[in-house]
């Protein structure tokens, strides 16, 4: 972060979490985000929404981005601002996300017709948080940036 940015955002604090790409460890990211959001003053229903969104984002990173390779890490950045919490989830990009999939609204009949009932994650994230952005991480992997605003 540059000095100029620091001056613009004096209250910005960052927590960084590096997790193994193994299903189950999304729980660590969920509970860390939840602990932080509660202490920032988010209401219970917003914390629950955030937990679900973080869980979906980290699960996607483990399953798709890192293809379940436990040696690869998922990096979660939690940026605390006085009026919002930003959660960024990045994988190492063994498989890159099809950008089309980030805007598609899943059709329930299509999902029911498939053996794999997944495919709701990105849509769910969009429904649960205030802002979502899918980009490429500095490391070259997939990155999703989610923002929830603090309503006082």
């Amino acid at each position: 972060m540059s000095n100029n940015q620091s001056e613009m955002r004096p209250l910005e604090k960052i927590i960084e979490l590096r997790l193994p790409s193994r299903l189950g460890y999304e729980r660590v990211a969920m509970d860390t985000a939840s602990s932080l959001a509660r202490r920032m003053g988010f209401h219970g229903d917003r914390v629950d929404a955030l937990k679900t969104a973080v869980s979906e984002a980290v699960t996607n990173a483990i399953e798709h981005g890192n293809q379940h390779d436990a040696a690869m890490k998922v990096v979660v950045l939690l940026t605390v601002r006085d009026d919002e919490l930003i959660v960024s989830v990045a994988d190492q990009g063994r498989q890159m996300l099809d950008q089309h999939s980030t805007t598609r609204i899943p059709q329930i009949q299509d999902i029911l017709d498939k053996d794999d009932k997944g495919g709701w994650g990105i849509w769910l994230i969009r429904e649960l948080v205030d802002e979502v952005e899918f980009t490429t991480a500095p490391s070259g992997g997939n990155q999703v940036r989610m923002v929830i605003h603090l309503e006082r």
């Binding site: 979490l17 590096r18 460890y25």
Partner: peptide, 8 residues
């Protein structure tokens, strides 16, 4: 492989 790092 279940190692984790955290920075605060």
């Amino acid at each position: 492989s279940a190692s984790m790092e955290l920075s605060i």
